[in-house]
């Protein structure tokens, strides 16, 4: 995905009094760049900007609490690009195509987990 880039991070772990340093890749992005729920990195607060579904299903998303301006967080990737989105205490499962139709932008103050 062109919107995201990968960065290399180091993490220091302590296990049985031994110190390990591990490096790992993680998707990063500029906060203002648009993503879809499908491409959005995990565990990052994001604001819904648009829902690209027909009117009937867009309204159903709204009734589920997924509406423009709502803050969500993608917490789980599943098979066939499905995603689980957290909105407050609620958990909403979306199939890959629906997840790709919801445009979000990452918030500045992201709580990492």
């Amino acid at each position: 995905m062109a919107d995201s880039s990968a960065s290399f991070y180091f993490k220091v772990l302590k296990c049985r009094d031994k110190i390990f340093t591990i490096g790992y890749m993680r998707e990063t992005c500029a906060p203002s760049r648009p993503f879809t729920v499908r491409t959005c990195p995990l565990h990052r607060d994001a604001t819904i900007r648009a829902i690209g579904l027909d009117e009937r299903h867009r309204f159903r998303m709204l009734e589920l609490g997924l509406r423009e301006g709502s803050v969500i967080r993608v917490i789980q990737r599943s098979n066939f690009s499905g995603r689980v989105v957290a909105k407050g205490a609620e958990r909403i499962a979306l199939d890959g195509q629906t997840a790709a139709s919801i445009t979000v932008t990452l918030n500045d103050s992201t709580n990492e987990q």
């Binding site: 967080r73 917490i75 990737r77 599943s78 098979n79 689980v84 957290a86 909105k87 205490a89 958990r91």
Partner: peptide, 23 residues
């Protein structure tokens, strides 16, 4: 307090909804 803390269900779902293990 409508928090979005990681819940017990979220932890189980990491396995249950995992792209491979979920199946």
């Amino acid at each position: 307090d409508n928090r979005d803390d990681v819940t017990f269900s979220d932890r189980i779902d990491r396995l249950m909804l995992n792209p491979v293990f979920g199946i």
